[in-house]
Design a binder for these strands. Structure first.
Lengths: 255, 255
DNA sequence: GTAATAGTGTCTATAAGACAATATATT
DNA sequence: AATATATTGTCTTATAGACACTATTAC
């Protein structure tokens, strides 16, 4: 797989290499995760600029995503999307999911193919590289109690989609496309609930939409529209521990 | 590229092969093209069953697409989507377009990536095959006067999307997905005009929508909606040669 | 009671669909 | 004039958004 040793003519006849990359969104970084701030932050960096919010359920309000710092050329030391080559016995989706388990420590609640990127010279060398990009969503419950600890956690950090560092390859384009896709209404209407746990209030679901769209949404109209879809089921339970009228809890009806 | 000679263990370590396939839609078969009828038809077969309409601007009303009969195993003799491996110096889109030129004899008016298919064992053998599927539209003007004559025309035929033969690999799934995509309203609103020439009447554009959707559309309402989009420009010219009031000719405003 | 958010009602503006009516060409 | 389709007008219904109002809990 080390194509850098090949001669120019060998590179020309070698078949293109294939890899998957994954843009994994969550509404906040997981507990205890390393947080990136578009520059370089220490393991628990003090209050640097104006941007960084403190840890824990970090900075809701925008989508966050995990990145991996590359250890090899090209782009050694630069942040990149989780991903890698495709083993012979995995489907594309399986390969994306395994990569995410190794990076995040858990499987996403939703996974969907995004696009195949395959321009000539994408890698900056002669060897062709075709990247099948995937799009993943992590809900609250998907991020608790990592089954497998992340591999090399020191090279993994979560970033707000608002404040991304420089990215390797054309990964900035891929993230931009993933964000656009996330905001396409017809698409996210059926997946927004995956940012949450199994049950949720309409206010929680509304805040997911607000985070995705970056705008405020009228609670009354949102309620009507969300319920009219017929995808939400009233569980009969209500929220507890609030200092006001508790809200009904709903769950999503799969089909 | 002949992976069939490899041993099982060699196949397991070989990187997946990559190919492009293209689903190319037009509103009828081009002049003089071979027409398929889900079975096997001679060069200008007589009136067989109820289905086959006669040649020329064949059977409007549904989308048509070109298929290629495979000459090698696997699936020798079976119809398949145009496509093939990706040369080292082509982007994915370039590869799809070149394949279509070789099959149809002309470049499509529109080309867009559809999806990457990459299940294990897609080819029925050990070797992995990842297919990047493309989606193309040919307009009336795109099909006249083929610049390059099709390669091996005897193995190429056009089929109505209604009456497809058995297809190789998982190409039936790919066509089904392409048809679904074609019918998604938000997508086709901006591309339907590509089935037509540079100028067209609103009735022609409406018939494209009817063909895609498979339903009738109210002329009055369609007119209002189409004009309200702001994408149509009145050329000032009108249709001629009709036996009734001539319609205004419009063209599409790019951007 | 007060505060705070859950949840309902209502009004308006906009868009979609059904369908009648009018306009303008050919024959 | 008869015919056929283009083009316009109008009515109804569905939907989205703004926003006032009521309900229910914690404190």
């Amino acid at each position: 797989m080390d194509y850098s040793r090949l001669s120019a003519s060998e590179r020309r006849t070698a078949p293109p290499a294939i890899a998957v990359s994954a843009v994994a969104f969550a509404l906040g970084a997981p507990e205890g995760a390393e947080l990136g701030d578009s520059g370089d932050t220490g393991p628990a960096g003090g209050g640097a600029g104006a941007g960084a919010t403190d840890a824990g359920e970090a900075a809701e309000g925008t989508p966050w995503l995990p990145l991996v710092r590359r250890t090899r050329e090209p782009f050694a030391g630069v942040w990149a999307l989780p991903g890698g080559p495709i083993p012979w016995d995995e489907t594309l989706a399986e390969s994306a999911e395994r990569t995410l388990r190794a990076t995040v420590g858990a499987s996403p609640g939703y996974l969907e193919q995004l696009y195949a990127f395959g321009d000539v010279e994408r890698s900056g060398r002669g060897q062709r590289l075709v990247t099948i990009a995937y799009w993943a969503l992590y809900g609250e419950n998907d991020l608790v109690a990592p089954a497998d600890p992340p591999v090399e956690p020191e090279n993994i950090a979560w970033f707000s989609a608002d404040r991304l560092p420089e990215l390797a390859f054309d990964h900035a384009d891929i993230v931009e496309y993933a964000l656009w896709r996330l905001r396409m209404k017809t698409e996210y209407a059926a997946v927004a609930h995956r940012f949450l746990g199994g049950t949720f209030t309409l206010a929680q679901l509304r805040r997911v939409h607000e985070a995705i769209l970056g705008t405020e949404v009228d609670p009354a109209n949102f309620r009507r529209q969300a319920l009219a879809q017929g995808h939400l089921v009233d569980t009969g339970d209500v929220e507890t521990g609030t200092r006001h009228r508790p809200a009904k809890l709903y769950r999503f009806r799969e089909r």
